[in-house]
Design a protein around this nucleic acid. Structure first.
Length: 566
RNA sequence: UGACCCGUGGUGUAAUUGGCAACACAUCUGAUUUUGGUUCAGAAGAGUCCAGGUUCGAGCCCUGGCGGGUCAACCA
């Protein structure tokens, strides 16, 4: 019962209620915080490719700005030069644009603020709120205590600001080796929150940075860069995932030391995206790329945005999926079928129907003239007249799908069998009179007759056939490589096992390559064009496809209720 | 033996100031269909982790449990 008949389900859900993040935003707006400004940011570290989990963050970051007339910055969180590469920056930009978002001229880098952060650090030192610690990391970790046991003070905790200032400056001049000294915030070694026990805020790294080169020898830690960068950019709502919840007191502590007026950014955490049969951590995705269990970051089986794009997923389908699962604080495990539904829902509207046979069985239409070819009219999408039509060639010899014929069909099988009739899509009704087998009992060809009066689009034929088959004309068909993908992992939660490695759950049959035959018009298809192969699934043209070698990726199979009944 | 966060059909979410637990996916029927797709119609499935309390009335508020997650990188 909706007032807008054409809206889809996710739009309906979106209208129905506010997620808790937007409820907070509206509350801040009502209370007049930050002069009514809304400003968010998407802060990836350029150490890998973006995946669908990032899409969830991107949608809330950019989407919130859009919804409330604010802005969203893109900020590369590049505080650790040893892990970051420019290659990743380019792919991140491309993937965000692909999703349909733009950050205008607001592309920033945490490294833009190295100078300001250094000054802030020296300011904290002068105020007695930071000190240089000469101990090795093991010693510092030991003194931190455990969640149950309070920490103990470092022997260097009482150094004078003068001495700390001198030491910190020399750290940055390269006088000390990496790991020999760190700068720590002086907060509370007995805090019940581990992050408040004098966290390390600067460390020495002797490695060139992709943007600042060798200008710096000390680099800020995440906790000392993120909130401050938000502050420098005027961010009002800093949205991140749940695991940063325990960092928030520290985030706020640094803001308290830094702020000079009423403005203050606010960190809000939401649940990370988990999907069954999928791993979603950059570390693990990188491992699969490195060990070659997939063919790169954009392997169509990967949950990366570049992989999903290559697989045939559309930006709209990803957005609808994200909207349908929502933003909460519950650690959810989303069923894969929710994603697949979103893809089918979108592709059903957009993808032209075409004919392809992936497991061919030869059919000879014995009463059809040899050498004759007809161009038959067909429609591209029965649900959308505006997508037009095309012609497809028909001849005496065609391929149908091997499993569309059964020698001894069960009662509910609607397709071809001995002495049975079916319609060939957009063509004629045919009847199977005979079939041949090889020595092993495999069926090798069917002999059928067609009824000229049943030509598609003609008058009612006065009889009903239960099944409709897709087919291609053998002399006209184009050969194509078809890649069928299945889930990469066999376990619903491959990384949820404490004593087993996620790689143990890799599905050896996640990729199957078959030789298929498609209707001749598809020879002209462009990379990333998507199609619905009748009764098989949604496919798109792989970017590596060429005129010499046509390659299709299966985006997602069609729902098939026959399989379940059988 | 800590701090913080979270417990609503199989899954994911919703439920105005407390007021008949709703929606989507998945599942199962049936109708239509030149795709066993799509579309349409319908069914089943939770009494909201447990125990108390406040209240005319609690998924929502209070108390105490139980269960799950995060936190002890010089990662982000």
């Amino acid at each position: 019962m909706s007032d807008k008949p054409n809206e889809n389900n996710s739009e309906k859900n979106e209208r129905k209620s506010l997620n808790f993040i937007h409820a907070f935003v509206e509350q801040d707006l009502r209370e007049g915080k930050n002069s009514g400004r809304i400003h968010t940011r998407f802060p990836p570290e350029p150490n890998g490719y973006l995946h669908i989990g990032h899409a969830k963050a991107i949608h809330i970051d950019f989407g919130t700005a859009e919804k409330y007339g604010g802005k969203c910055n893109l900020r590369f969180d590049d505080t650790n030069p040893v892990k970051e590469e420019v290659e990743y920056i380019d792919s991140i930009r491309e993937d965000i644009h692909w999703l349909g978002y733009d950050w205008g001229d607001r592309e920033f880098y945490a490294s833009d603020y190295f100078g300001k952060l250094y000054d802030f650090a020296t300011d904290l030192i002068r105020r007695g709120l930071a000190y240089v610690d000469d101990q090795p990391s093991e010693k510092i970790a030991e003194q931190k205590g455990t969640p149950n046991v309070p920490g103990t003070d470092s022997p260097y905790r009482k150094r004078t600001p003068k001495e700390n200032l001198d030491l910190f400056e020399r750290m940055n001049k390269g006088e000390f080796t990496g790991g020999s000294r760190v700068l720590r915030a002086r907060i509370d070694m007995a805090s019940p929150n581990m992050h408040m026990r004098d966290p390390v805020i600067y460390r020495i790294i002797d490695h060139p940075h992709h943007r600042t080169g060798t200008d710096w020898k000390v680099y800020p830690m995440y906790d000392f860069a993120h909130g401050q960068s938000d502050y420098f950019e005027g961010i009002t709502h800093s949205l991140c995932t749940l695991e940063f919840e325990v960092h928030r007191p520290l985030y706020d502590w640094f803001i308290d030391q830094l702020k000079t007026d009423d403005y203050r950014p606010r960190q809000i955490e939401f649940n990370r995206l988990n999907i069954t049969y999928t791993v979603m951590s950059k570390r693990k995705l990188l491992q699969m790329v490195k060990e070659g269990v997939v063919n790169g970051w954009n392997d169509p089986r990967m949950p990366t945005l570049s992989g999903l794009r290559r697989r045939g997923y559309t930006p709209a389908s990803i957005k609808n999926f994200i909207n349908s699962i929502g933003y909460t604080k519950v650690e959810a495990l989303n069923d894969f079928s929710l994603l697949e539904f979103a893809v089918r829902e979108d592709l059903n509207k957009k993808a032209p129907r075409v004919m392809a046979v992936l497991d061919p069985l030869k059919v000879i239409i014995t009463n059809y003239p040899e050498g004759k070819t007809e161009e038959l009219e067909t429609i591209n999408n029965p649900e959308d007249e505006s997508m037009g039509g095309r012609t497809i060639p028909f001849s005496r010899e065609i391929y149908i799908e091997r499993d569309d014929f059964m020698e001894d069909p069960p009662k509910k099988f609607f397709r071809l069998g001995p002495d049975r009739e079916v319609r060939l899509k957009s063509a004629y009704v045919i009847k199977c009179n005979d079939y041949k087998k090889d020595a092993d009992g495999n069926i090798t060809e069917l002999h059928c007759t067609y009824d000229e009066a049943t030509k598609s689009g003609g008058e009612a034929i006065g009889r009903k056939v239960k099944g409709t088959l897709h087919w291609v004309s053998i002399p006209h068909a184009v050969e194509a490589e078809v890649r069928l993908y299945d889930r990469l992992f066999s376990d619903p939660e491959p990384d949820g096992h404490k004593d087993r490695d996620f790689m143990e759950f890799l599905n050896p049959e996640s990729l199957q390559v078959v030789k298929g035959f498609v209707e001749p018009g598809l020879a002209e298809a462009q990379p990333l064009d998507h199609f619905q192969f009748q009764r098989i699934g949604y496919f798109n043209v792989d970017p590596d496809s060429s005129p010499d070698k046509l390659v299709f990726n299966r985006t997602v199979p069609l729902r098939d209720t026959w399989d379940k009944k059988g």
